[in-house]
Design a binder for these strands. Sequence first.
RNA 1: GGGUCUAUGGCGCAGCCAGGUAGCGCACCGGACUUUUAAUCCGGUUGUCGAGGGUCCGAAUCCCUCUAGACCCGCCA
Length: 528
Amino acid sequence: MDNQEIIGKGTWIDKLAFELIEREKNLGRKLENIRVESGLGASGVPHIGSLGDAVRAYGVKLALENFGYKSELIAYSDDLDGLRKIPEGFPESLEKHLAKPVSLIPDPFGCHESYGMHMSSLLLEGLDKTGIKYQFRRAIDTYKQGLLKEQIHTILQNSTKIGNKISELVGQEKYQKFLPYFPVCKNCDRLYTAESFEYIENEKKVRYKCQDTEIGSKRITGCGYEGEADIAKDLGKLAWKVEFAARWSAFDIRFEAYGKDIMDSVKVNDWVADEILGHPHPHHVKYEMFLDKGGKKISKSLGNVVTAQKWLEFGTPKSILLLLYKRITGARELGFEDIPSLINEYNELEDVYFGKVKVDNQAKLTKMRGLYEYVNLLEPPKQISTHVNYSLLVELCKIFKDNRIELVTKKLLDYGVIKISEPEITKLIEIAGNFADEFEQQEKSKINLDQISRNALNELSEALSSDEELEDIQNTIYQIAKSHNIQPKEFFRVLYQIILGAPRGPKIGPFISDIGRKKVAELIAKQV
RNA sequence: GGGUCUAUGGCGCAGCCAGGUAGCGCACCGGACUUUUAAUCCGGUUGUCGAGGGUCCGAAUCCCUCUAGACCCGCCA
């Protein structure tokens, strides 16, 4: 390993960017502006995996820039795709829009110009909040402006060859029969139902017929319309098996990551780009899908969606970036419960970066520092920040529900974890609080009180609510238990049940004075 | 049928993609502290890294074969 040279900042991102440049040099292409692309689905609720595609592409862009090249990220919304399924929690009224391009469907929530823009915006919001910069492009504009018309023309001219190749490469025979182009039916606005069967080369028009088709298990009825569509002027789109290739060629894309679910599609597109369009396909990296904790693929319809929005309620933007940049290979089961360890891991990286923690292995040190820099989008802070263990915050937030920020801050000061209250810490307390509220298991066992306990509790309640200063609450509790002949252990347990709803808790004396003696007195009185 | 990933102490996982003394959390054991709950702190135990072969001075890590599980594709996008 000693003779191994470290590339860039030592992460997989650098390695990838390095390979990309080597490849481009071999191809002899110009490198004045290296475009990387990320496709944004616009038909379903965007989850963290969709975000990952763009975030990682942006990482590659940063690595390229770090190597001294100019680069930009194109975020391309597939908003001419047809709606295939109504996502969980969306109104049934969408039924009548099935198979229509998502950018032609009204936003069911009324906040965006279309269904497609609603979905895209959710993803873009995630990107904005994590600090990812991009150039936004939409399929509908791309097609309307005829940006792909040359490529579409070439593809349709070669449709027989392509159809055969698709069959050979991935076993799909559909395109031996139909053209890989879906017009939007002039009569009913539907995509997919309009099957095109003939290309009139000199007019650049496809002839199609709108007929019944099956999407998933659903049958979509076509309207029977038969007509022609101008590939440069009328609305329509290429089939996915060839569309990437057209885009890569038209936009001169040099890098695009992809999830393993569209591996076949990429295989075909690479061939089309290379052999039909004469644009060597972009450099790729394949990533695994995120799975939920049960090992199921994250699916919008199952409602186990981990969205950026939801994540940011509980975690920092950096925790998302760390998740996505720390590695790319490997299937990963993902859930919100990973947030605490990611936040702590970020702090560890920061300690290493600022030399607070020593790492002996030089390659590892470089890699960790590099990862830290990428998580900060190559603009790392100048100074180390105050670290508070996230799990500790969550525990404290479970305990303090009222005046949370104030009380938790006070505790942190007591513990000596922080020296002064900072806005960043306050923000952390907020999200840790959200986390605590959302995921606290209610292990509220029933509190069965016998008469002896009641008497003891009454005495305690009175003692706490009196204005007299109690010298030592801890001691008082102990004394009361003893005088009523109750096992202290048992008495403490009952008190924790009443105050926290849990069988255990922090040392109870200081805890009661933190919450407020009178408040605890009331709580106890209510129980008795 | 095609493809990808995963397999590491009792449990959950990191380390693998750029080979260099196997690590973390939980659990467990011991100690400290607290007037005897709890919490906290300190210390400790736990492994033929799924099996087999290969490369190498050296393999959890790279290569090949196998086993088991998961997922994706074989509709469509």
